[in-house]
Design a protein around this nucleic acid. Structure first.
Lengths: 116, 116
DNA sequence: CGGAATCCGTTAAGATACTG
DNA sequence: CAGTATCTTAACGGATTCCG
């Protein structure tokens, strides 16, 4: 996700989807909002179906995009904390809206929900 | 997009992203809301970078998902009209939120915007 | 602990040509 | 007009192993 051509004009709906599309971005942003700050391992346990590769890759993209910040503690064992930036936090109302809509649909379709 | 396993439990953020993810879904829903009803050719002209294959494929997914309806007029030349369902229309406030956020970011990054 | 590296399969998307 | 069909490419995501 997020290979935005700087020269080509882009429409804002398209742009926004490029920035938050991808299999795990929504959930990562959502969890970081709920927990304020989370370590790598915490995120990994929270998103059970994610592999380290995808977690790292997604976190990097979000960081490059300035939606999250990454704070490294140079100690042994290493410790890295992730949290939302202000820009990232601005997405919360929208993700929440989406989540509520998703909840209603899951109920309608009688699917098997789990908590985000 | 949207290959939801009916047996596995799913979180609502994830679920919602599956249903509206995909390169063109956001824009199609947005345009259908603005124009109320649009023909195939109109959508094609509105979304200039879409190929007929992707347009048809995306419209079918949205239809299967009951986010849009497809009305065929059996006449010559053929005429097909697309419009939002009630469920699809429920997504508008959230897409609008995302669009506004996208606008701000585009301005910040000094990108080259075009109207949605 | 928090990754990086490599390999590989799957899925999404694009190009192009054709049709009822 | 509103699509299909076929082929190819590119992006996404997973599994596994290893490292400071």
């Amino acid at each position: 996700m997020r290979k935005i051509n700087l020269d080509e004009p882009i429409c804002s709906v398209d742009y926004a989807f490029k920035r938050i599309g991808g299999k795990y971005k929504g959930r990562i942003i959502w969890y970081l909002n709920a927990h304020v700050v989370m370590r790598y391992g915490e995120l990994r346990r929270a998103i059970r179906d994610i592999t380290p590769k995808m977690l790292t890759q997604t976190l990097r993209e979000l960081e490059d995009d300035k939606l999250i910040t990454r704070k490294v503690y140079h100690e042994v064992p290493p410790k890295v904390e992730y949290s939302l930036t202000e820009t990232g936090a601005e997405l919360i109302p929208f993700i929440d809206h989406l989540r509520q809509w998703g909840d209603r649909q899951i109920e309608k379709e009688k699917l098997n929900p789990i908590l985000c």
